[in-house]
Computed example of a mutant assay.
Amino acid sequence: MPEFSAVEGMKFIYPILIGFMVVEYLVARENYELKDSLAGFGIALGASIVASFTKVFTVVVVFQWFFDVFAPIREQYLGYTSIGFAWWAWILAVLADDFNFYWHHRLSHTVRVLWAAHVPHHSSKNFNFAVSIRNGWFITLYKPVFWLWMACIGFEPVMIGTALIINATYQYFLHTKLLGSLGFFGKIFNNPYVHAVHHSSNVEYLDKNHGGIFLFWDHVFGTWQNIIPGVEPKYGILKDPETYNPIKLNTHEFEAIFKDVKKAKNLKQALMYIFGPPGWSPDNSTLTVKQIQAGAIPQGAPSNSASEAA
């Protein structure tokens, strides 16, 4: 079955990626911290176990189901049943995939329950290839939703799965201090120099640079931020769980949501704690990223205190 082969193909890439990680460690081991790296491997192991079920199911069953169900509609109204495998179709698939990733990624930073699933990827205070494999265990439960439209309009499921693999592999190489901005190509393609901004907890850099392969999505949709001279990226998240436990790193924000929902005074507050932006509170005792960047100060805090966000 070709769809299954496309997803399975990822396993042949893993040894190569691990090899690059070993080389990076040998060249710049100062960028690695043992406990942090072990936590990253623990997160990656759990994510791989989940993905071994969900990814194959998504491509073989879910994408194929939507592709088949909408085939008669495509034939009737668009005059085709499949976009096919022409060279231009592959280019469109990669572009569409990256568009999907941008919005999946952006919403994973601005919708709290999605942030809870994504936050393990940002919980490291380091920036290296070991960070690239810190994929949250619950991401695959909602990520495919952003790709369903591709199957509906006629992209072959195997093509969607391959585009996902291309994007994931490219992004692996964004997490290192050993590569720069890629010169001219770095003005079009995502690169470690600007992805460092995305992994930074500096107020100026929060919720910026969500693109996967291409940079123009951030320019078009207003989330672009270059490195600011004199503002060195500080990696990690504002509300550090202060743990290396992979289970805790995957669940701490869900626990925080549960606690907040229990203290909600009405349904609207409960829903905002779940689906509102991280840091939202009805009394501004904690702040969202936009509030922090606007210079707001949480109620009850001294004027010189740092705000808490997600």
Score class of each variant (00 low, 15 high):
Val59Ile: 13
Asn128Ala: 00
Ile16Cys: 06
Ala151Tyr: 05
Val158Ala: 14
Tyr273Asp: 02
Ala270Met: 12
Gln225Ala: 14
Thr162Lys: 00
Leu179His: 04
Thr140Gly: 08
Gly136Trp: 03
Asp68Val: 11
Phe275Thr: 03
Phe63Met: 11
Gln76His: 10
Ala270Pro: 03
Pro241Trp: 03
Pro277Gln: 05
Val113Gln: 04
His122Lys: 06
Gly222Asn: 10
Val69Leu: 12
His195Gly: 08
Ser201Ala: 13
Ser5Leu: 15
Asn190Pro: 00
Phe275Met: 02
Thr162Gln: 04
Phe99Tyr: 14
His105Arg: 11
Cys152Leu: 11
Ile257Gln: 04
Asp68Tyr: 00
Gln293Trp: 03
Asp283Asn: 12
Val27Ser: 02
Tyr235Trp: 12
Arg112Cys: 09
Val197Gly: 02
Gly186His: 06
Phe66Gln: 05
Leu17Trp: 02
Asn245Arg: 04
Val56Thr: 13
Val50Phe: 00
His195Arg: 10
Trp217His: 11
Lys263Cys: 06
Ala270Lys: 14
Asp260Trp: 06
Leu174Asp: 03
His122Ser: 07
Ser305His: 14
Phe63Arg: 00
His199Lys: 06
Phe189Gly: 09
Gly222Leu: 09
Ile160Glu: 01
Ile153Pro: 10
Cys152Glu: 08
Phe66Ala: 12
Pro246Glu: 12
Trp103Gln: 12
Pro277Val: 01
Asp260Phe: 05
Ile139Leu: 10
Asn304Trp: 14
Gln64Met: 09
Phe189Arg: 06
Tyr102Leu: 12
Leu249Gln: 15
Lys262Tyr: 10
Pro246Leu: 12
Leu182Phe: 14
Leu178Cys: 00
Arg134Trp: 08
Tyr102Pro: 01
Phe12Ser: 13
Glu3Asp: 15
Val94Arg: 00
Ser52Gly: 15
Tyr273Ser: 05
Ala28Leu: 03
Gly9Tyr: 01
Leu249Asp: 07
His198Ala: 05
Glu308His: 07
